[in-house]
Amino acid sequence: MTVKKRLTIFLIFLVLLTGCKGTSSDVSSDTEVPNDKEYNLMITNNSPLFLKSVVVTVDEKNNNPINSLIDSNINLGEAAKFSINNGKHAFKITLNPKKNYSVSKEFREEFEKDKVVEYQVKIEENEVIIKKKDN
């Protein structure tokens, strides 16, 4: 094999190994990117369970759920973050752990601008509980 062929194969291998680190030029201005500062409900997993999903269903008028928000793959110490409209809301938090039963609990809370409401998932007396974090 000639030096030129070896060099070409080496360069191709090097390019495939490093991959492409460029950015897409097809980014439209109307694409919204979530910002961590925009959430006002945080649910921290302080249990050894891996949560496949955390679902928050907000009840508005006439007890009709109008908004279900989902966050997924929450490990120990991680938090699911949600954005809820300001004002008083009734909502239900549903936890869906991997290889375990689902747990849900209903809450009423008043959401205010620039205030984050925190809940945590714990195991107490062999039961999974959702509890508001004392600030």
Rank of each mutant, 00 (worst) to 15 (best):
N135H: 02
G22Q: 10
L41V: 00
E32Q: 10
D30S: 08
Y39W: 07
S24Q: 10
A79C: 05
S24D: 14
L51F: 15
S104P: 00
T18H: 08
S83A: 11
N96E: 10
E38K: 05
Y119V: 02
Q120P: 00
K37F: 04
D59Y: 11
F13V: 11
I70H: 06
F10K: 13
K5I: 05
I123V: 15
H89K: 15
Y101R: 11
N62H: 12
Y119M: 03
T94F: 10
N135K: 06
L11N: 05
I130H: 08
V55T: 14
P65Y: 03
G87Q: 12
T18N: 10
G19F: 12
C20K: 08
K132S: 02
D26G: 11
I70Y: 04
I43D: 10
F82W: 09
F111M: 04
N35V: 02
I70V: 04
D26E: 14
A80P: 07
N45Q: 04
K5R: 12
V117M: 07
K105I: 00
V55Y: 09
E38T: 03
V55S: 15
N135T: 04
V3T: 14
K21A: 11
L69K: 09
D59V: 06
T8Y: 11
E60T: 11
N63Y: 07
N96R: 07
F82A: 05
P65D: 06
S47C: 03
F111C: 01
N73I: 01
V15P: 08
V128H: 07
E106C: 02
V117L: 04
I84G: 11
E60V: 03
F10Q: 13
V116G: 05
L76R: 12
V58P: 00
N46D: 12
V128Q: 12
I12T: 08
T8R: 15
